[in-house]
């Protein structure tokens, strides 16, 4: 009896979003009279940073600073429709919708500026810091502030745009059952190192080394933040979390933070994150959806590392000390027989 060490590896392919009856998201973009922009969405920011990313996407598409974009996700009763923020679909679906809406708004903005400058709209470009100028003649310019004022008070135009992104429903082929559940895939691989105590059944994750391929990282620091937190959640899924901890009766299930276990600040594995960027063909600026995927590969990697350490396959989550001990008992009974 001793503490044994093991190492396990696992890799996942992860679809961005889902495909049940089709997967749509809409976005609306409009300018205020003073040339800042509103993005209206029903997609929810639950802490992953969706509003920041949508502001970046809108700003990049219209050609204005990110600070001049406000994202409103206040009300699903009155906002444009979104299927929701889940299945790692937010950036991909809502981002594409915002691009389409922002392109339409940009076109109106350039048309108004063209009237003011008495040139052709197709000859105009933005400088990214709040001005529109004639291509090749930067001195022939008008601020977006003045353009918006002119649109509102002189031309009677609304600098606005509608965006819609739909992944159409994919029906299974009758012969093979094959279907296309997603249009792009993110990827991840984790190497986990564990210690398993054969006497107590306790598993300690010493380290996880993760590599994530996520398309283009639209905000690298926020991507890193999500991947670090997600890696921790993966370990939590593997070893800690369950609504029915140790007893067969559901009424003995976890009722609060004391009983619903997750790794605390003293239980952290040494964590490494590497990001690979292979831009997707149909994502906004090449983005995919890394959200849920970042908590996936740690689970099989930890299970494989336990197998490497003590030679047992635990195929029920979470891998509690009780389950490890039962598996060890079975292993030893098999060896004796």
């Amino acid at each position: 009896m001793a503490v044994k060490r093991g190492r396990g590896v696992a890799a996942v392919n992860y679809p961005t979003g889902m495909n049940l009856g089709g997967d749509p998201t809409q976005a609306l973009v409009h300018s205020t009279p003073t040339g800042s922009f509103m993005v209206t969405l029903s997609s929810v920011d639950l802490g992953q940073g969706l509003k920041q990313i949508m502001a970046q996407i809108c700003a990049e598409t219209i050609g204005v600073p990110t600070e001049s974009v406000t994202v409103d996700t206040a009300d699903t009763d009155t906002g444009p429709h979104c299927m929701g923020t889940f299945a790692s679909r937010g950036t991909h679906r809502a981002g594409n919708a915002v691009i389409q809406a922002a392109r339409e708004a940009r076109q109106v903005m350039l048309e108004v500026a063209a009237e003011e400058l008495e040139v052709n709209a197709s000859d105009l470009d933005t400088d990214g810091s709040g001005n529109i100028h004639v291509k090749g003649a930067p001195s022939r310019s008008i601020s977006i502030f003045d353009t918006a004022l002119a649109a509102h008070f002189k031309h009677g135009r609304s600098i606005s745009g509608r965006g819609m992104f739909l992944v159409p429903r994919s029906y299974p082929e009758t012969e093979t059952g094959a279907m296309k559940p997603s249009t792009c895939y993110a990827h991840a691989c984790t190497v986990a190192e564990v210690e398993v105590d054969e006497e107590t059944g306790e598993v300690v994750v010493l380290s996880v080394k993760n590599v994530f391929e996520i398309g283009r990282a639209l905000n690298p620091k926020m991507v890193e933040q999500q991947l670090v937190g997600g890696s921790w959640m993966g370990i939590s899924h593997a070893l800690y979390e369950t609504t029915e901890p140790y007893y067969p009766d559901r009424h003995h299930g976890a009722r609060d933070y004391n009983e619903y276990l997750m790794p605390g600040p003293g239980d952290l594995a040494e964590t490494e994150i590497a990001v690979l960027e292979r831009p997707s063909g149909d994502g906004p600026f090449g983005a995919k959806g890394p959200g849920e995927m970042c908590a996936n590969p740690q689970i099989p990697a930890v299970a494989n590392a336990i197998f490497d350490a003590v030679g047992v396959r635990v195929d029920t989550l979470p891998i509690t000390p009780e389950r490890v001990l039962r598996a060890l008992k079975q292993r030893d009974a098999g060896a004796a027989a």
Binding site: V228, G229, P265
Partner: peptide, 15 residues
């Protein structure tokens, strides 16, 4: 911080 629960960050960025 061991008496404070976080469900997003994995604690490392907070530390």
């Amino acid at each position: 911080i061991s008496g404070n629960v976080c469900r997003c960050t994995g604690y490392e960025p907070i530390i």
